[in-house]
Amino acid sequence: MTETSAWVIFIAAIFTNNILLTNFLGMCSFIACSGQIRTSLGLGTAVIFVMIMTTIINYVIYHFVLFPFNLVHLQFIVFIAVIAAFVQLVEMFVERFSPKLYFALGIFLPLITVNCAILGASLFMIIRNYSFMQSVGFGLGAGIGWAVAIVLLAGLRQKMRYSHVPKCFEGVAIAMVVTGVLAMTFMGFAGMVSIQ
């Protein structure tokens, strides 16, 4: 595992091991915010940024604080605290220095705290024993993969508004089925690169 290069992990995290379509992380906001391409793009960008930063911070904390002091069982609570604090920090920074970006991302930033993809990326990084560079590649790839998936679904859902869906399947149910088909398409990338 350790010999896989960061680049391979980056590509794999986007395509073959897409965090959303194969690991089902970040589904809640994925379903809730995929109504329009614009919104989903905003959310996607915010996720990419927060994900890469929190993976790096959590990597450092885990390997230099939690592990040496034998506090590994506290990792959940520490990770979630880091993510919450980081999101808060980013929000304040963006509000102060770029109000324009703040209004574009504003609503999405708090939502990201409870996005399981962010916490999931940190946990996967620990479980798969990534090195620092691999973690960076993974965080970036996973974020981009998530953004790609949500933008794709938003496009599909926009088109779907004009099609006839059985009444009981309207809304979330059909979105799930469409996501299933999307996931099947992404399986076509399998074999290109592989990580575990």
């Binding site: 089902f24 979105a175 299933g180 088909v181 996931a183 099947m184």
Partner: peptide, 13 residues
């Protein structure tokens, strides 16, 4: 993965 999405979609439906 795809089976999961489709199964949940059908259950919700």
């Amino acid at each position: 993965a795809p089976g999961a999405f489709i199964a949940l979609g059908i259950v919700i439906g």
